[in-house]
């Protein structure tokens, strides 16, 4: 017994160190999956509160710029609406509109967002009570932004495109060839486009958009433009894409609940 006490007093610092380090590694492992549990939700609420205060100030300072962006988007939508109005007499009108819709958009505000980590996430102020569920797409006025990974009652938590785990099925608008978009961890403005075979005709400046194959993202949403094409080596191009969304100034985003994702996945199960 005395030996034990001696041992403890001699190595007390090491013991304290090991205990604290073990607790923080436990935090790491528990937080990794972002499952809900009382304690972690408590910590996350504190962090939401802090970042909400900061983003409040941030949002106020950037109002002028945000207004410009919204006005520009409004203008574009209005133009598009006008062009549809011409077609309206020729389009068969279906009364039960909601049956035919594939996607509906939910407006959400960015509460927290990071760009300087390897695994970046976006917190949005719409949650389960607004009908948000995991695996819904998140887009911004300029293009794709992320995908919802977990939801609480009032908030949702989205994996940003700037996350090493993020994969997106995209296609080249002009030729329709599809590949996979993923971030390489370097620049906030750029990502890599993979699996485009060597024979495809591609040039700098080509538009990259979502393919819609996953049923999470609607097809045709802008992802970026081709910045560099490297055809040397292998069967596939190495392509750098300039992302259309600037993740350093996200404010309002759209969550896109897909109405048919369950149905599509249901038939795709082998």
């Amino acid at each position: 017994m005395r030996n034990l006490l001696n041992f403890i007093s001699r190595y007390s610092n090491l013991i304290v160190f090991i205990i604290l380090e073990a607790v923080s590694v436990w935090f790491l492992v528990r937080a990794e999956g972002y499952h809900s549990s009382g304690f972690f939700n408590g910590v996350r609420n504190v962090s939401h509160y802090i970042t909400r205060q900061i983003s409040g100030i941030d949002g106020y300072l950037a109002l002028r710029e945000k207004n410009l962006i919204l006005a520009r988007e409004n203008l574009e939508l209005r133009n598009r609406l006008e062009s549809y109005r011409e077609l309206l007499p020729y389009v068969p009108v279906n009364d039960s509109l909601s049956d035919d819709k594939d996607y509906i958009y939910v407006l959400a505000r960015v509460v927290n967002n990071s760009v300087n980590k390897q695994y970046n996430y976006i917190t949005l102020n719409k949650g389960k009570s607004d009908g948000i569920e995991p695996e819904m797409a998140v887009t911004g006025p300029d293009g794709v932004a992320g995908i919802i990974v977990s939801v609480s009652d009032k908030f949702s938590y989205a994996m940003s495109v700037l996350n090493l785990d993020f994969r997106l099925s995209v296609r080249i608008r002009k030729s329709g060839y599809f590949g996979s978009l993923r971030w390489d961890g370097f620049s906030v403005r750029q990502a890599g486009l993979y699996e485009i075979p060597y024979h495809v005709d591609i040039a700098v400046g080509d538009t990259i958009e979502t393919s819609g194959y996953s049923a999470v993202f609607p097809p045709g949403i802008l992802a970026g433009t081709v910045a560099e094409v490297d055809g040397s080596g292998g069967d596939f191009y190495r392509i750098v894409v300039n992302l259309s969304t600037d993740f350093r100034k996200l404010d309002f985003l759209y969550i896109v609940p897909s109405l048919k994702v369950v149905e599509q996945q249901g038939i795709e199960v082998i």
Partner: peptide, 17 residues
């Protein structure tokens, strides 16, 4: 710092080290 940046454990373990 972890709580404020939403990354549980990362800052805690390295600061303890």
């Amino acid at each position: 710092v972890d709580a404020a940046s939403g990354t549980l454990g990362i800052h805690t373990s390295s600061t303890v080290l």
